[in-house]
Structures are given as structure tokens and as C-alpha cells.
Simulated scan of single mutants.
Amino acid sequence: MGLFSQSCGGVQAQTVGAEVQMAQATSPEDAPPPRRRPPPRLRVTPYYSPDGVYPRYNPGPDAVRECNATYVQEFRPSGTVIVPHMHCYWRRG
């Protein structure tokens, strides 16, 4: 610490002058109006359709739903079971 104090021997502290500037708060009338954000846009899609099948695309006005049902084996901890599986798709009618 002694080395630092010797190298800065000719430095003096500055004094505050008679003029002191203070920050002034603006009145509410002078402030600009707050920015309003536009309301968020939410895209609403139906959670389900009345018949239980909701196509991921518009199949058209004359579309027909084709379904194939089969039985498949499923291996479960309690043993092998046979369960029905159904696969459906849309085709033009």
C-alpha cells in the first residue's frame, strides 16, 4: 500500500462547486402516454369433433372414411393379449 501512496503524491481531491445540479422528476402531465400492447392473438381449434375423428386436412365435401379393423397381439407384463386395432383414413367418395 505504501508504494501506491508514494506514486500518487501530487493528487488532490476535487471540491464541489456552488452549483449543484439535481435530477428533477417530471410531472405526470409531461410524461408520454404509456405504450399499449395489442391484445394477444389466440388460435382456437376444436378439441374434438362430433363424430370422434378430426382430420388433419380438409378431405372435401364428398370424402368417405375408410376403416380397417384387425386383431393384434400385445405383450404385456401380465401376459400376451389379443386386442383390436383400427386404422382409418379419408378417401374421395
Rank of each mutant, 00 (worst) to 15 (best):
M1V: 05
G2D: 09
L3C: 06
F4E: 12
F4P: 00
S5I: 02
S5Q: 11
Q6N: 07
Q6K: 09
C8S: 14
G9A: 11
G9W: 08
G9D: 04
G10E: 13
Q12N: 06
T15D: 08
T15K: 07
T15G: 05
T15C: 10
A18E: 07
A18V: 01
E19N: 08
E19G: 06
V20M: 12
Q21M: 03
M22F: 12
A23V: 08
A25T: 00
A25L: 12
A25Q: 11
A25V: 06
T26K: 09
S27R: 07
P28A: 09
D30K: 10
A31M: 11
P32G: 12
P32S: 15
P32W: 15
P32V: 05
P34G: 14
R36N: 08
R37C: 11
R37Q: 13
P38G: 11
P38S: 14
P40R: 08
L42V: 14
L42C: 11
R43Q: 13
R43E: 09
V44L: 15
T45A: 09
P46Y: 03
P46W: 04
Y47R: 12
Y47P: 00
Y47K: 09
Y48Q: 12
Y48E: 11
S49W: 05
P50D: 12
P50W: 07
V53K: 05
V53N: 07
Y54E: 06
P55F: 02
Y57W: 08
N58L: 05
N58Q: 08
N58F: 09
P59T: 03
P59D: 03
D62M: 02
D62T: 01
D62R: 01
A63H: 01
V64M: 06
V64E: 12
R65C: 05
R65K: 15
E66S: 13
C67N: 06
N68C: 05
A69H: 09
A69M: 13
Y71C: 03
Y71H: 11
Y71M: 14
V72E: 12
Q73S: 09
Q73E: 14
E74M: 11
F75Q: 13
F75E: 10
R76H: 11
R76Q: 12
G79F: 04
G79M: 04
G79N: 06
T80G: 04
T80C: 01
T80P: 02
T80A: 12
V81Y: 08
P84Y: 05
P84W: 03
H85E: 14
M86N: 08
H87Q: 10
H87S: 14
Y89T: 07
W90V: 01
R91W: 01
R91P: 01
R92P: 03
R92M: 04
R92H: 10
R92D: 03
G93L: 04
